[in-house]
Write a protein that binds this DNA or RNA. Structure first.
Lengths: 312, 312
DNA sequence: GTCGCTCATAAATCCAGCTTATGGGCCCAT
DNA sequence: ATGGGCCCATAAGCTGGATTTATGAGCGAC
């Protein structure tokens, strides 16, 4: 059962590559193929050819060319918006990857829980880079205990954890909230029910879970301990990505951070089921050693995450 | 003043291409380079080389190779999650593009307002494709009047509009809600204020707007008519994308649908400013000709959009 | 020991996209 | 009206990256 979606033609052949999407965005911004070309560092004929082959690939005219410049067509405006989503995701990828790369010699060392590292940090790093270009960031992902240990050992400058309490020896500040959601594919029977799920029902259901030790799983286990504890997992998978993929493909229900599934929820690829009586909210906290108040880039990042503006 | 963010190295050179990201996801799913290679339709050496150059590019080991298969490293799990976001955005792009292309000979013809077409439809189409593979969809984007006209002329099977009322001759159902938000870059002075914005202040401020005729702009104009109406625009741009890009780069404030900016808000690339006394909520509705209840794929799509529970 | 799976390497091929060079259309200023 | 500025399109040649085949080597099960 489950996966093996055999796609005759891979996605990469149906979607223009990142360079082309960036070029399209540049055209939208600058109003001319030539200007856009210069903005992305290629020549005008290259841009012309690239946009043309993109139009051939999509089967739709994207820009109105005129001797006075180029404007997006109606379809082009739509495509450009979709392209922006892809480019933004790619920027987040890049921000995260850069942080991961600089493990050794970097200046700002961040330790974060998986959920925060996956879904929030890349965005923050983009914003940080805008305010402090050139800051090298390194990122280590682990559970609360690992984060605490790194901070106390002086191997990280700033940490982020989700959970109920601040580990000993650390100071912290709440920077946001997160909630665990029960999610299923829209085709799942639960998607049609009107009544909220009861904790007992959830506890008795076989779920798709991350492997033992994940923070998400621990929170869920303790919240349901009064109702019989978690049932045997239906599947145990290594990454949040794998869990999501399994749920989307209809393998069964899972409980995931809302941060991990907002995209799928608005797109209706997943449906969230209300849960009765149990509140699965948890705080997101920035933490640091009591002795070392964050300074410099660490302080900037901290400020950023609290919704404020940058110091300057 | 538009700033020229000159990136020495374009994003496309720092981020692996879509094919490589898909391959990485396949490796995560299948646990072996060779199987992953077959899954994406290339040979094993090609996959090996691609993953290797990806690791070189990112400067991080992504998979643990062994004679019994390959598993993701810790860093690999993070990267894979970021990769999934990119691939999902690309899938949405593809879903939209396919709908756009099939304008002529397709079986399900959808007419939708810009905001819905941009941010919700691609996701719905992905879900629809999962349930009804092979359904060809065509998409036309326009304002309420255009949508109504197409439906009544029999040139579209199902419509989606945002707004206060259902056009004459159509039946409709509320499928969700949307809210207009005032957004600025985190560096903008407004990001620091504690007091909500007053309607008069907003009306007196020069904003970055979509060009005249956009639904968003009309709603805003009428909501502020009691407070002096909109000021002269600071910039008039052709697409929501262009507006967002201008705001992020600090050009000024804008008013945009929350659907358009959720991503930027959670990533803190944009900040939303509370607005006093004026409620900019609006309903999102599916609509169809009173005479033609949706059937077949149109009915499936309609069911899909009413499926989940959406906060807000 | 041998078969089955795994991954890595080498060499040849092929194609996609780039650059330079050129030409034509439109508008404005002189 | 005419030259110069902007715009875009086309043609030709080059280059590099990714692919394919063919092979070798490690590990485990029988």
């Amino acid at each position: 059962m489950s996966d093996e979606h055999e796609e005759r033609v891979p996605l990469a052949h149906r979607v223009p590559d990142l360079g082309a999407l960036e070029l399209l965005l540049a055209v939208a911004r600058h109003g001319s193929l030539g200007r856009a070309a210069r903005a992305v560092g290629i020549t005008q004929p290259a841009a012309s050819s690239r946009i043309r082959s993109m139009e051939r690939q999509l089967g739709v005219a994207l820009v109105d060319r005129s001797p006075r410049g180029s404007r997006l067509t109606d379809a082009g405006a739509l495509v450009t918006d979709w392209a922006l989503r892809v480019v933004e995701a790619a920027e987040a990828f890049d921000a995260g990857a850069q942080a991961l790369r600089g493990r050794r010699d970097s200046r700002l060392r961040v330790a974060a829980s998986m959920t925060i590292a996956e879904y929030l940090l890349p965005g923050w790093l983009i914003a940080l880079r805008a305010g402090r270009p050139g800051t090298a960031v390194s990122l280590l992902a682990g559970n609360s205990a690992v984060v605490a240990q790194r901070l106390l050992a002086g191997e990280a400058d700033l940490g982020f954890v989700e959970g109920l309490s601040v580990p000993d020896g650390l100071d912290g500040a709440v920077i946001g909230h997160d909630r665990l959601l029960v999610v299923v594919a829209p085709s799942h029977p639960w998607a049609r029910r009107r009544a909220p799920l009861t904790p007992a029902e959830l506890a008795a259901t076989q779920l798709i879970l991350r492997e033992r030790g994940s923070g998400t799983r621990q929170v869920l286990d303790s919240a349901l301990s009064a109702h019989g504890g978690l049932a045997e997992p239906l599947l145990e998978l290594a990454s949040t990505t794998a869990v999501k993929a399994a749920v989307v493909s209809g393998a069964g229900p899972a409980v995931l951070s809302e941060l991990a599934v907002t995209e799928e929820l608005t797109a209706r690829r997943l449906t969230s089921i209300p849960l009765d009586s149990v509140d699965l909210r948890r705080d997101l906290r920035a933490v640091w050693p009591t002795s070392h108040r964050p300074t410099g880039p660490a302080r900037d990042l901290l400020t950023l995450t609290r919704g404020g503006s940058k110091p300057g």
